[in-house]
Amino acid sequence: MLTILISALAGLGLGLGLFLGDAAHWGWCVFWALLGFGACQAAAGLLLRGRVKRLMDGVQGTLAAGQKRLQARVNQWQLRPPGSLKQAQIELEREQRGFLQQALGQTEAFGPYYRWSPLLRRQVNTLRMQLHYQMKNYAEVDRLLPSCLFLDPLTAAMRLARMHVRQEEGLDRFFEKQAARLRYGQGAVLYALYAWIALQRNDIDLAHKTLIRAASKMENETIKRNLEHLANNRPRQFSNAGFGDEWYALGLEEPRVKTQRARGPGGRPF
């Protein structure tokens, strides 16, 4: 907001200066005032974007480095399996939480710039909400959601998932609003989530119609497979597991771990 105010004052000062100094006709004074406002706004915007970008790059760098360390550890365990899978999972979660908290701490540096950009606070709140969601700090997620921007399908899916868990009103209206913004090929997980929620309500017809809409707007194997299950009256076989981490990150279901049963000397399971 301050950039707009300062730019307006600069433009007004320029226009009044020219008018009172009888340096130009009043029409030209208005023109130069508007031009001064625009130039000041553009200069302030460039300066602000540069500083905000450096801060955002720092946060993204922390996240990328953390993910790289996690992947390196997973690759190492694939070559040399750990003694305890449960302990290995705990270590991964601890390390992930560490760099997510570090990234959260870095977002505090955006604070001084909130007064200069009306949307920056909401953009940073959206980032903070996503980080808390990954750490399953749902109390913080719910606190931040009202002040977030939902500009991508996954963030909208996070909001929709929390509305379902909290049994909030307006869930259907929110989905329709977000679906209307999607371009062709976008939002598979959002449609899949809404269909899943419909099934939790025992509304198979709504789930089926939702997947028909999705299939007409994108090519996605999980959408097609679930649509086939519902079309053939097999709602129990509905599964969004095909989306992988994108689905499980919503915290509504846990991945199914397949355990291999022991086999006897003849190769038959006990």
Rank of each mutant, 00 (worst) to 15 (best):
W32P: 00
G17L: 06
A39C: 13
A72G: 09
L120I: 07
L46R: 15
A231P: 06
G61V: 05
Q106E: 15
M135N: 08
M129W: 04
R173H: 12
H132T: 03
L252N: 02
R115G: 13
P82Y: 08
S239D: 15
Q186K: 14
G17M: 02
L16P: 07
R80C: 06
M218G: 10
Q123K: 10
C148H: 03
E108W: 07
L206P: 00
V30M: 08
S239R: 10
M1H: 05
E108T: 09
V141Q: 03
N125M: 05
C148E: 00
D203L: 02
Y184S: 12
L70M: 10
S7M: 10
G251L: 06
R54G: 01
P265W: 13
L35S: 11
L70A: 10
A88D: 03
L211F: 11
G111K: 10
G242E: 13
R166P: 02
Q260I: 13
K86Y: 10
C148L: 03
Q186T: 12
W77A: 12
V189M: 04
R213N: 10
R263I: 08
A157R: 05
Q87G: 00
L2Q: 14
A8E: 01
D172W: 04
F270H: 12
L230Y: 02
G83M: 11
L48E: 06
L9C: 07
E91F: 03
A192Y: 00
W116E: 04
L35R: 03
L70Y: 03
W196G: 00
P255A: 11
L48F: 10
E176T: 09
I212S: 11
